[in-house]
Nucleic acid binder design. Structure first.
Lengths: 227, 227
DNA sequence: CGGTATCCCCCGCGATACTG
DNA sequence: CAGTATCGCGGGGGATACCG
């Protein structure tokens, strides 16, 4: 591990940590606010527990995170250090580049579970009605167990549910994963898809009209793709 | 390779290309101006030919470089595309982070051959006397075959030699790899090391005085280390 | 929930030798 | 100079089962 590249160039030294499979995604989750093991896994669902733990240990060792038992002692927390927080700049440049130049989306990238997990951090509850709002998504092209999701939006938090939360749905969104992914990425305009029927809304007209204002989309959505 | 991570996040898509061993270093060399196979290898000496070729093919496939026979048809050239040039921003953020937060330099990082290769791109010939200037380096703590190097500086180019170029040396620099590496990285001030004898100069007083002005140091030398 | 422990396979990668 | 071909190993990492 030490001196993997035989150079003292800062890019080489950083590579020892960063240029490994999964690493950017784990760091992205941490910088998005995840602190717990399974929280990180929801953002990186395809990594194995073994490997995630290995990577977290490594990040701790090089000083990107610190590990801590939470107050109740019931669970472990992984917290970014200043070094870890400064990796946000790297995530930014990598994401910008990916948005502009990386390969096109393919079938196997379209994990609806990941999409809703990413969305739940980018829903602007302050733009919503006060109190509880239940948002339901139906991805009609997804396998049965990934077709339906609910967002339980309170005044200051958003929870993702894979079963009905037990409250009535206020606004339902019906779409394909493909179309919604492209909207999320900023490759198609949201309002236009609503008009053309690529995204269908069911619920009060007031909520339908407000909906595009709730959805902040991907952090990189405004970056113009070049290919 | 495709959909390695099962997400369409731009960071995940970029990771498929970037988050691999050696990749940042190869891209660094290309962005530093290398276009030929063995030129890249000089900047990444520990990579095997097999693997370098594999990586270059991959970079070509994803549109970061294009391959071309040069005019004479005698050799292959690897040229950055616009996508490849935009990776400079990524190199910048990764290098900045590495400079600030990556691990300290260790013995095995101290490859004098790599150091002189890195230096030759950062020597300001416009600050030198007109005509030819021969700069000689002696790293007294290096193994015999890595002790001596020459820079053959012309008005518009710098060549690295591992044997005497056959011209008299105008200025000789005697130092340890360790000390010079730290100066190069911006961890120690050059002028102070010259004063204290960590770096010794032999040659006309005029050249000795001018020397610190020739050496541009690492691109990241001005970034302040945090640990 | 937050991991370990184990098994095992594959392939990433280095080393060496050879080529046009 | 710019690779290719071949071999071989080590360990990266996936799958599964188990634990406090």
């Amino acid at each position: 591990m030490t001196s993997e590249f035989g150079q003292f160039c800062p890019i080489a030294l950083a590579s020892e940590v960063l240029a490994q499979k999964w690493m950017f995604l784990i760091i992205r989750e941490l910088n998005a606010g995840s602190t717990r093991f399974n929280e990180i896994r929801r953002g990186v669902p395809r990594i194995s527990a073994t490997l995630l733990k290995q990577r977290l240990d490594q990040l701790e060792q090089v000083g990107v995170i610190i590990r801590r038992r939470n107050e109740k002692g019931s669970s472990e927390e992984y917290l970014l250090t200043e070094a870890g927080r400064e990796l946000k700049a790297v995530l930014g440049s990598v994401g910008e580049w990916g948005q502009r130049w990386a390969r096109a989306i393919e079938k196997d990238d379209l994990d609806p579970g990941w999409l809703v997990w990413a969305m739940h951090r980018r829903i602007d509850v302050t733009a919503m009605p006060l109190g509880r709002t239940v948002l339901e998504f139906e991805f009609f092209d997804a396998p049965k167990d990934q077709r339906l999701f609910w967002f339980l939006c309170a005044n200051d938090s958003v929870d993702v549910c894979i079963k009905s939360p037990g409250f009535d749905t206020d606004l339902k969104v019906i779409t394909s994963v493909q179309v919604f992914a492209e909207v999320w990425r900023g490759l198609r305009p949201l309002r236009q898809e609503i008009k053309s029927g690529g995204i269908r809304l069911e619920g009060s007209l007031a909520l339908q009209r407000a909906f595009p204002g709730w959805l902040l989309l991907s952090v990189f959505a405004k970056t113009r793709r070049q290919v």
